[in-house]
């Protein structure tokens, strides 16, 4: 009797979940899934995006991608940018959150200051840091008589660190808030019990804080990874993908190829390959999320 009632409740809950997801899924299907299918269709052509003819070329565009050094270079930059962001933002955001959660004075003021940059459009952030590196920071050399190279966007060897600084400056405060919320939801009794048992600060952080923050970590890792893989607007307003091609991301390269370069078919192949990678990343992340839920 109980099993039957529970099963009915489950079915009801699942129906509710399904209904909640359904509107979004329909919208995304019409707006994104169908275009993705069309993109795959175009990727099998050499269409220029303008003319009526869409000559079928089979999988030639995909074969060409494997030999396209510019595309591979764009992937290289995107992966490094993503790894850099994921590591730096998570570590810094967590450390800042722990610091703010420790009961320091002016906590709300610091929290606001850290959060403000993420309210600014990435396009504006790009402009800000372009000016910072080329105009504002070099003034310090003049004032203090130093010779520090602040022109990080001006060289292919320093453009990645320069962009990481700009991107992390913008987003660390946002992820810090998520960690802070996670920290504040951890019961104080756990820490008190650990203290009674003689656990030190590091031990408490490792054995209580980190495990209890697992859902927050998952959210932050997923958000930072996907945000970094999508980077476009920051680049457009700061480096334009340069110097040369040193900061060209996959999406920027795809846009330049398909739209500006009038190689819509080839650009579509780039998009499809990107979607495949993103799907893999998304599936892994969803799986990771579920496994964490099981652990808790």
């Amino acid at each position: 009797m109980n099993r039957k009632r529970k099963s009915g409740m489950e079915r009801k809950m699942e129906r509710q979940y399904f209904l909640i997801v359904l509107p979004g899924f329909v919208i995304f299907t019409i707006g994104l899934i169908i275009p993705t299918i069309l993109a795959f269709r175009y990727s099998l052509t050499s269409w220029d995006g303008l003319s009526a003819e869409k000559p079928f070329v089979g999988f030639q565009n995909y074969v060409n991608l494997l030999h396209d050094s510019n595309f591979l270079q764009a992937w290289g930059f995107t992966i490094l940018f993503t790894i850099g962001n994921t590591v730096i933002q998570n570590v810094c955001a967590l450390l800042f959150a722990v610091a703010l959660d420790s009961g320091i004075r002016l906590q709300k003021v610091y929290r606001t200051i850290f959060f403000i940059p993420c309210l600014i459009s990435s396009v504006i952030v790009g402009f800000i840091w372009l000016k910072m590196y080329s105009n504002v920071l070099p003034e310090f050399n003049e004032i203090f008589g130093t010779n520090i190279n602040f022109l990080l966007f001006g060289s292919s060897s320093t453009v990645l660190p320069g962009l990481l600084i700009a991107n992390n400056w913008q987003w660390i405060g946002y992820w810090m808030l998520i960690y802070l919320a996670g920290l504040q939801s951890i019961p104080a009794e756990l820490y008190e019990a650990a203290k009674v048992d003689g656990a030190g600060a590091f031990s408490r952080f490792k054995n209580i804080t980190l495990p209890m923050l697992a859902p927050s970590i998952t959210i932050c890792v997923v958000g930072i990874t996907t945000g970094s893989l999508k980077v476009y607007d920051l680049l457009v307003s700061s480096t334009g993908g340069g110097p040369g091609r040193a900061s060209t991301s996959v999406i920027l390269h795809t846009y330049n190829t398909a739209i500006s370069g009038r190689q819509y078919g080839y650009g579509s192949a780039m998009s499809v390959s990107l979607v495949i990678v993103l799907l893999l990343v998304a599936l892994i992340q969803v799986k990771s999320l579920r496994s964490r839920e099981v652990q808790q």
């Binding site: 994104l32 899934i33 996907t226 846009y255 739209i259 500006s260």
Partner: peptide
């Protein structure tokens, strides 16, 4: 099974939303 379906839908939705960013000179 339905949870898997939901997961798949969410995953697909997430991937599709990422694709939005790849759409899309002197």
């Amino acid at each position: 099974m339905k949870k898997k379906l939901l997961s798949l839908m969410l995953g697909t939705t997430m991937a599709a939303s990422l694709l939005a960013g790849c759409g899309g000179t002197a």
